[in-house]
Amino acid sequence: MRVGENLNRALHGLLRDDPSVYVLGEDILDPYGGAFKITKGLSERFPDRVLATPLSEGAIAGVAAGLALAGDKAVVEIMFGDFAALAFDQIVNFAAKSVTMYGRRVPMPLVVRCPSGGHRGYGPTHSQTLQKHFLGVPGLSLFEVTPFHDNRVVLDRMLALGEPCLLFEDKVLYTRPMYGEGAVDELFAWRTVDDVAVVELADGGDPDYTLIVPGGLVHRAVSAMRALLLEHDLAGALLVPSRLHPFDPAGVPGLVPLLARTGLVCVAEDGTAGGTWGEHVAAGLHARLWGTLRRPVALVSSAPSVIPTAVHLEREVLVQDTTIRSAVLEGLHG
């Protein structure tokens, strides 16, 4: 099953099982079913609770917060995650703050879905990954869709938190298959430790390096790991959390041995460097594992540039499998 289909089924199941759930967004009604078809079939089946809205991201998030305040639950689709900037005030200054700023905890079950990322030729305003702009806001959690985590479980978890959550969804990932139980391919196996998917060589052994990436980079990371193994004889591990923030890998007991015996930790992410998720994760690892890390944590971001539209220019800016491969080689041998 493809990731997009898994997400679509998760929304169907959520609406079916919980009559207090609403789904709101632009152009999400059938037969169109949303710009990326993630809401396909929802409005025909649940016409009262699947609402097409005007082009008003701020008010969509605000209306969703109002529904949550009144006892419902809301899932918002922002057509392109870039447009979450238009909802920044409602998400950061209202929904997230409302959880705690009234003295007593106010449940705010609300998910804002943000189709993100490039590699599709949509250009500078339709290709970004805006995680870093929402990091560290009290009362706001960040999640990212991965090919490992079932989206129904993720949606249930987010709504149960009772605080607004952003769900980043890499657009390329929609068309990729979910990984079946246990195996990534003939070389790599995966398991979960807490909510972190851990990918390792099927035949075990200590990893020469460990990558930490959000769900959208998984395929690029696995491709880099294959090349590093086959061309450089370097064994890698990969950690993919479902919840990006808060996220503290050194605080997960099941991950500490792995992080302690790896030759290099490399955090790769989409988006430009400067106040990023990856830097935050690296700072945490440096503080918590200073005595055991063998090398400084290596960071991979996209180039400090807007994201061009033309495919050859876009490729130069965005993180590729080769970018990750080079960063690992440089980190280990540079």
Partner: peptide
């Protein structure tokens, strides 16, 4: 102005 969309959401529920 922040309360207006929120109030609209509550009104939708009501």
């Amino acid at each position: 102005g922040q309360s207006m969309p929120v109030a609209a959401g509550v009104a939708l529920h009501l």
